[in-house]
Amino acid sequence: MKRITIIIFLLSLTLLLNGCWSKRELNELAIVMALGIDKTDDEFEVTMQIVNPSEISSKQPSGKNSPVVSYHAKGKSLFEALRRTTALTPRKPYFSHLQMLVIGEELAADGINQSLDFLARDHEVRNDFYIVVADQSTAKEVLNVLTPIEKVPANKLKNSNEGSQKSWASTSTIQLDKLINNLSSDGKSTVLSTIEIVGDKKLGIDPTNVERIETPVILVYTGLSVFKEDKLVGQLNEEESQGYNFIQDELKSTIEIMSCPKGGNLSTEIIKSKTKVKGKIINGTPSIDVTINVDQNVGEVECDIDLSKIKTIHMINKSTSKLIKDKIKKSLDSIQKKYQADVVGFGEAIHRADPKEWKKIKGNWESLFPELKVNVKVNVNTRGLGTVQNSLLYKTKE
């Protein structure tokens, strides 16, 4: 009886084990690498960039077919539009490998909350893809551009966004969970990287776009798109975007170019930046203190300057500090005066500093933010001068 009881117990455990009832084979799926959403009249139009497996496999591709295929469909809701694509695709779209979401300019200006709601609810869609906004074009047009080197355009969009954010600081790698958190925070709006088509849009879909030494149509990140609540209100250029990333403590590295006293230029590489933002309310008036500590290396010297002198290093530090302050000022002028959208989270900083006083001014934050006083302090430390101390150019001339 004891042995029978054990056998029955073990058999009952098998009922609790997960099986493969919901399995889907790879050859039954259409892997979606990028998704584009546009607004046409009162309908949503979706564009799915799907991988053509035979053209990106490790085996020798035919070279006759495109590495990706785009499918388009419209619907009154995003959910309906996506379901309608099943009537077009030879396999069921699979979104777990989604790399990029491109939002068309018209939809961004109209509001993105409705689109985000579906993506946040769908269990198949992961939240680790990047979200960008098309500038002066539709998401459909962006995803139809073939790109060199990276066969899958979605990978090019992803890599360029990451590379620009890490090395140039003109973009921001925003994923779904961060975007939703930004839009749901009190008094805060958000930014998204801006993608632009440079060249004739009609040529971008042609295979010859990737068969030439100089690609006639390219996709370029041009800065950040500013959203007030969930609606697009404008763009920050590259310099303003860098200022934004300094404030947000999201700057990994960038380049600063300054003029030398005797003519010529000197370039430095920012290798480390740490920002602290503190809010305060004095006599009912809110203000912000921004302190930024920067480490840099001298990257290129195109002038007659003696880097062995301490006063020269002090001059370089002071010049870099001024350049960063100027970028931040230009960024804040656009954010506060032009767009009046708290994408930098100053409202949250004041809330953390003084919750009681924040409750009093919270209702008037939209009118207070444009006139908010922001004190910026930038401390710069030059660490490295490179393997050559002074310029070889001017040494040769001498």
Rank of each mutant, 00 (worst) to 15 (best):
residue 138 T to K: 09
residue 173 T to P: 03
residue 45 E to A: 14
residue 308 S to L: 14
residue 382 T to R: 04
residue 321 S to K: 07
residue 13 L to N: 12
residue 12 S to C: 10
residue 339 Y to E: 01
residue 42 D to Q: 08
residue 177 D to N: 15
residue 268 T to N: 15
residue 298 V to A: 08
residue 112 I to A: 03
residue 68 V to M: 02
residue 364 N to L: 07
residue 118 F to S: 02
residue 359 K to E: 09
residue 212 R to C: 09
residue 10 L to P: 01
residue 253 S to N: 10
residue 144 N to K: 02
residue 34 A to Q: 06
residue 286 P to Q: 08
residue 66 S to F: 01
residue 249 D to N: 15
residue 295 D to C: 06
residue 153 P to G: 08
residue 81 A to D: 06
residue 93 P to M: 00
residue 327 K to C: 09
residue 51 V to S: 06
residue 300 E to I: 01
residue 225 S to D: 03
residue 246 F to P: 09
residue 315 M to F: 14
residue 302 E to T: 06
residue 363 G to N: 05
residue 304 D to V: 12
residue 354 D to Y: 07
residue 329 K to N: 12
residue 319 S to Y: 14
residue 51 V to R: 03
residue 16 L to E: 08
residue 386 G to H: 05
residue 277 V to N: 12
residue 359 K to P: 06
residue 353 A to N: 02
residue 146 L to M: 10
residue 203 L to C: 05
residue 344 V to P: 00
residue 42 D to K: 14
residue 356 K to R: 05
residue 185 S to Q: 10
residue 331 S to Q: 05
residue 378 V to P: 01
residue 240 E to W: 13
residue 248 Q to S: 12
residue 209 N to R: 10
residue 231 K to C: 06
residue 25 E to N: 13
residue 306 D to M: 05
residue 204 G to C: 13
residue 160 S to M: 11
residue 265 N to T: 15
residue 89 T to L: 03
residue 372 L to V: 10
residue 87 A to K: 00
residue 153 P to H: 06
residue 165 Q to F: 09
residue 187 G to V: 07
residue 205 I to K: 07
residue 265 N to C: 15
residue 148 P to L: 05
residue 346 F to S: 09
residue 398 E to F: 08
residue 316 I to N: 06
residue 196 E to A: 13
residue 386 G to W: 04
residue 87 A to V: 01
residue 94 Y to P: 01
residue 155 N to D: 11
residue 167 S to C: 10
residue 168 W to Y: 15
residue 117 D to N: 03
residue 255 I to M: 14
residue 29 L to M: 09
residue 222 T to S: 07
residue 181 N to Q: 13
residue 334 S to E: 07
residue 392 L to F: 08
residue 211 E to Q: 09
residue 191 V to R: 14
residue 317 N to T: 08
residue 312 T to S: 14
residue 147 T to D: 04
residue 79 F to R: 03
residue 327 K to R: 10
residue 175 Q to R: 14
residue 398 E to D: 11
residue 194 T to C: 14
residue 353 A to E: 01
residue 5 T to P: 04
residue 31 I to E: 01
residue 52 N to A: 01
residue 99 Q to I: 01
residue 177 D to P: 09
residue 110 D to K: 02
residue 27 N to D: 15
residue 350 I to K: 00
residue 162 E to S: 14
residue 249 D to Y: 11
residue 178 K to L: 14
residue 202 K to N: 12
residue 188 K to N: 15
residue 61 P to W: 02
residue 115 S to Q: 06
residue 304 D to W: 03
residue 42 D to L: 11
residue 380 V to Y: 13
residue 191 V to C: 14
residue 233 V to T: 00
residue 170 S to P: 05
residue 143 L to E: 08
residue 152 V to P: 02
residue 268 T to E: 15
residue 163 G to Y: 12
residue 158 K to S: 12
residue 155 N to A: 14
residue 154 A to D: 04
residue 225 S to A: 11
residue 263 G to E: 13
residue 330 K to A: 08
residue 21 W to G: 05
residue 176 L to M: 12
residue 148 P to T: 03
residue 219 L to I: 03
residue 215 T to M: 03
residue 48 M to T: 06
